[in-house]
Design a protein around this nucleic acid. Structure first.
Lengths: 128, 128
DNA sequence: CAGGATCCTTCTGGATACTG
DNA sequence: CAGTATCCAGAAGGATCCTG
């Protein structure tokens, strides 16, 4: 995805655009969700990585950087051998992940409706 | 963005992955937000387009299709000359956009914190 | 006005190799 | 283990042209 706002007009001041950059980044919310629900708010890089199949190391690190810059998480690194880095949700991150969880809850709550509207390939129907 | 889930394992069953495809699509939430807050839940294509500077027609239509398939909006077209197409939030869409608005509210609420953490170029500070 | 098809540039993101 | 840099195939997305 390319940057949503590029200051072409006066939209960098618009809250939606600001937030969009954060939560429309494909992996941000998944990472937050995992960090929150699976690891209780904090985890080391490798652990987090193994919890997110399909996410490459490159993207994980890159997204973690962005999240760090956005203030959603903070990073604690011990500059010694075997590097131990720990990412933790910040208070800001906690407030955000709460909303993310609501979105996911919406998804679970409406799984049926969402499923009914996606007649993908491989006609899988349980009773019809 | 490439498809988030590709059925590599068993994750297509995971609610987060499902939802991710919807709300992590860069323009989906902006369109919903605009449709909801600016146009009261329904609008014609052109009107919607003009409300979303920076969004090309191609992406608008494409995203509208996805949203339609997801059941967030529905589409009413009159097959006559000058085509008049109207997009409207569905009940499902209304429930979703409500969460989107909360995310934006979070953004406004924490604009200060978010801003403080982004020491981009061009040091613009309004009052110190 | 609504939107599909095409072309072509840009960006994303995986694989790999390397540092500490 | 944690992270960076490079390479490169493939996807995203804008511009344009065309239909009804």
């Amino acid at each position: 995805m390319q940057p949503v706002s590029d200051d072409r007009e006066g939209h960098e001041d618009c809250a939606p655009r600001r937030v969009l950059e954060i939560f429309a980044t494909k992996w941000t919310s998944m990472i937050l969700h995992t960090l929150h629900s699976v690891h209780g708010g904090q985890a080391r890089t490798g652990v987090l990585h193994r919890s997110l199949p399909g996410l490459s190391k490159k993207m994980l690190v890159q997204t973690l950087r962005e999240m760090e810059h956005s203030g959603l998480i903070d990073r604690q690194a011990e500059s010694v051998v075997p590097p131990a880095v720990r990412y933790r949700l910040t208070p800001l991150g906690y407030r955000f992940v709460d909303l993310i969880e609501q979105i996911y809850a919406w998804g679970r709550d409406n799984a049926d409706a969402l499923d009914a509207l996606r007649p993908r390939a491989s006609s899988r129907r349980r009773s019809g």
